[in-house]
Nucleic acid binder design. Structure first.
Lengths: 262, 262
DNA sequence: CAGCATCGAACGAACGCTCGCTTGACTTTT
DNA sequence: AAAAGTCAAGCGAGCGTTCGTTCGATGCTG
């Protein structure tokens, strides 16, 4: 199973390994005993549900579609999860775990230089979201629509990665190699740049941009914005008045019209 | 209706005005004749469907929920659209139109200076997406899941705004005030920064960041990245090898297992 | 021949959508 | 001016369909 494992991180982000972890985490609800059978079928289920959901949305994906795509009967599916929501949760958990695990495995020498550390975080995140692209898209698109446990976990995960960026920025500011007005805000701005890679990957593909190139360009862009300028700090004075017309105090806040029956 | 209309653009982005435009565009399918009645009810329908959909997704929003929230009976709803999909389309069209219309109304003096033009585009986009926040979130989250016409329109709209950014960047490069390696790519990177404002607006709200502040900060960040540096062009050589472990040539690309019946 | 794994018909609930009916403001008739 | 007629507008029970889920029968394997 392991063979060409690069860092000593001990984590593997291939489909099969990820499904193995799902199996272990949900041993109690998964009714199939033999691990190799269970994991093999989980692979087919997860692969199918990611494909179908990323095309039409999780809610629009029916278990009959999933059954056909995975090659497992309706009843068979219920040996692997006790309801549609659980299936969603299985995937979301795995994504959140993978992100934190991958980004925390920063090599010690890299951590020394804030600029290099930042570039490493960006490159690692892009590489991870490239390997697990369908998972990331799924988590990003479906996280909002579901039960509090999943929502909380997703938000927490996002904040955790944001904090990692903030810490690096702060270290850079202290070391004098970054010039940042608001560390937290700038850290927040980096996240959407990383998300764009997997959310709109098709667009980049079409333009011949691959993961490594994307990461390098984003690093360049971000580092350019952070690098202290010699003098002439021309902060944008304030945005040019770009107020949109919004016809007086319209938009009645309480348009409750009485119905016949309540 | 009009009164405090700032630019001479002639566009109004209040809920009622937007529904008025929807009414005009769909006169043929909307069965209600009297404009003031139709627009008033469209307001209640659109407001309700945006609220419900942004909470649980459009697909998960049932017409019964919508009927209750809007205060219009099931049958009544069908006087305003001939199917759930049409309702989705009505909103998507309106968002795409508003974006292009707003961004094309750039004042002539602003266009002269690329930096100012860029800041104006950012500020205008943020201001528009602030005014129409639920619409933007709806369009962003639901665009993928629907019929080719809607998808095509959404992609085209995104490319159009992207091209506007690219043109400004190009003008700035020619004028010597921007230093950009790849104009198209950099233009692409700006979009997600704008989207983050409405997609994660709750997060920014919680931190006391309002629309104007957000736009100003993003402008600063982007302009800092574009401003030519005196010397020392330290392009990131290549990303530090951030390869994730992906257990040998796993991930069987064709895990088709035969079923009993095809 | 156990017993684990899988199957797929069947079920109740909930969906999008329809349609015959009621309502009420306005027009016409007497 | 009162009565009768008209029709746009709105209503909600009910239709057929499809959903998530269940469960007894049926392999398959050691």
């Amino acid at each position: 199973m392991s063979e060409q494992r690069q860092p000593a991180a001990g984590a593997d982000y291939a489909l099969e390994a990820l499904c193995g972890r799902i199996y272990e985490r949900h041993r109690d609800t998964i009714k199939v005993q033999k691990p190799h059978v269970a994991v093999a079928n989980l692979v087919r289920i997860v692969e199918a549900v990611l494909t179908l959901s990323n095309r039409h949305g999780f809610h629009a994906t029916t278990l009959r579609d999933l059954s056909r795509a995975a090659g497992i009967s309706m009843g068979g599916l219920y040996s692997y999860f006790d309801g549609k929501d659980t299936l969603l949760l299985m995937i979301l958990e795995q994504v959140a775990d993978a992100v934190i695990e991958a980004l925390e495995a920063v090599p010690e020498p890299v951590r020394a230089d804030p600029a290099e550390h930042l570039a490493w975080l960006i490159a690692t995140h892009v590489a991870l979201s490239e390997t697990m692209q369908p998972w990331f898209v799924f988590a990003y698109m479906e996280a909002k629509a579901f039960p509090p446990p999943a929502r909380k976990a997703a938000v927490a995960s996002e904040l955790a990665t944001e904090r990692m960026f903030a810490q690096v920025l702060e270290a850079g500011v202290r070391a004098g190699c970054f010039s940042v007005a608001d560390v937290d805000f700038t850290a927040t701005l980096i996240k959407p740049l990383l998300q764009d890679w997997y959310v709109k990957r098709g667009k980049y593909r079409k333009r011949g941009v691959n993961a490594a190139t994307y990461a390098a360009r984003v690093s360049d862009f971000v580092l350019a914005a952070l690098t202290p300028r010699p003098a002439a700090e021309s902060e944008t004075p304030l945005p040019p008045k770009a107020s949109l017309p919004v016809g007086k105090a319209s938009t009645p806040r309480n348009p409750t019209r009485k119905r016949k029956v309540d």
